[in-house]
């Protein structure tokens, strides 16, 4: 009983810590690519604590304040469904398909909150967020089906176990892995898929009216979001890991490649982004699915 409570507290904290270190490295990597010195490495902690310590916290109604909390709760729930080395948590009681639904709660919570403001930028931002989700969910579902068909199970823990001894899905289903990378990248909302927050167009979109404590919660949610997306990619395609250290190294490798991509791209328009997702990733994912079916 005590160990259950301990795990319930420690696992979200671990996910939060991993997301936080990724944000720290992200600021430094961006700075180095732009030939700057960059902020101090613990700058995200200063930002977060400053936001949580703001004296003023403006709210535009109950749902506005609840939005970040719903998003955060959805993210924490999703964290429990992802197996980490040595711990399978709730993975046995819900499968990959349930996880796909739970991962959408984050965006929906934000949509609820942002919809409660009268700011047109927030409405545009949230409509872009849901449209983009509509775009990348199609190839995501196809590659998840191909992975399920490959291993004849929807249990994420079994999928990780089947990839033991280096039989990663990356080697057995390379096309699916490439699509998975693109989809994960799109879900993180980095360039060229940063249409949701696009500071120059819609002034950070759904977050436009959020400040102080609420923005702090959204930042924490973003850290969880990074962890969930990349951990799922590592579990599905890079064979999970035998211990936490290797899990972190694999996740960091994926994140590092993503950050380097983030530096070189410009921004899509929303219709171009959806067209992109429904063209190349979908076609490649379908080819991969046919390969699995024929094999």
């Amino acid at each position: 009983m005590v160990s259950t409570i301990l795990i319930a507290i420690c696992v979200p904290l671990l996910a939060f810590a991993i997301g936080l270190t990724f944000i720290m490295f992200k600021l430094k990597i961006t700075a180095r690519v732009q030939r700057r010195y960059g902020p101090p490495i613990i700058q995200p902690i200063y930002n977060l604590l400053k936001l949580l310590l703001k004296e003023d916290n403006i709210s535009h109604g109950v749902i506005f304040s609840l939005g970040p909390i719903i998003a955060l709760a959805g993210s924490i729930l999703a964290v429990f469904f992802i197996p980490i080395p040595g711990l399978n948590l709730l993975t046995g009681s819900g499968d990959l398909i349930a996880l796909l639904y739970i991962m959408a709660i984050g965006s929906l919570g934000m949509a609820l909150g942002a919809g409660n403001t009268a700011n047109p930028n927030a409405s545009i931002g949230i409509s872009r967020a849901l449209t983009l989700m509509f775009g990348y969910d199609l190839p995501l579902v196809i590659i998840v089906i191909s992975v399920i068909l490959q291993y004849h199970t929807t249990n994420l823990a079994d999928i990780v176990a089947a990839q033991a001894n280096g039989h990663w899905t990356l080697w057995t289903l390379p096309l699916s892995a490439i699509v998975g990378f693109v989809v994960t990248y799109g879900a993180l909302g980095e360039h060229p898929f940063d249409i949701i927050t696009a500071p120059h167009e819609v002034a950070t979109g759904p977050m436009v009216e959020y400040g102080g404590k609420h923005l702090g919660f959204l930042m924490i949610n973003h850290m969880f979001h990074i962890y969930i997306e990349i951990a799922l990619f590592v579990d599905l395609f890079l064979g999970g890991a035998s211990n936490l250290f290797w899990f972190y190294i694999k996740m960091f490798g994926v994140f590092f490649i993503m950050m380097l991509c983030d530096e070189v791209f410009l921004r899509f328009k929303i219709d171009d982004a959806v067209r992109f997702f429904w063209k190349w990733p979908t076609v490649v994912a379908l080819i991969s699915l046919i390969i699995v079916l024929v094999k």
Partner: peptide
């Protein structure tokens, strides 16, 4: 803001909305 003087060294960053700024 940019590479030459890089004010982010001091923890400063440009933001776009009034609710988020200090």
């Amino acid at each position: 803001m940019t590479s030459r003087y890089d004010m982010s060294r001091l923890g400063l960053a440009p933001f776009v909305t009034s609710r988020q700024a200090d």
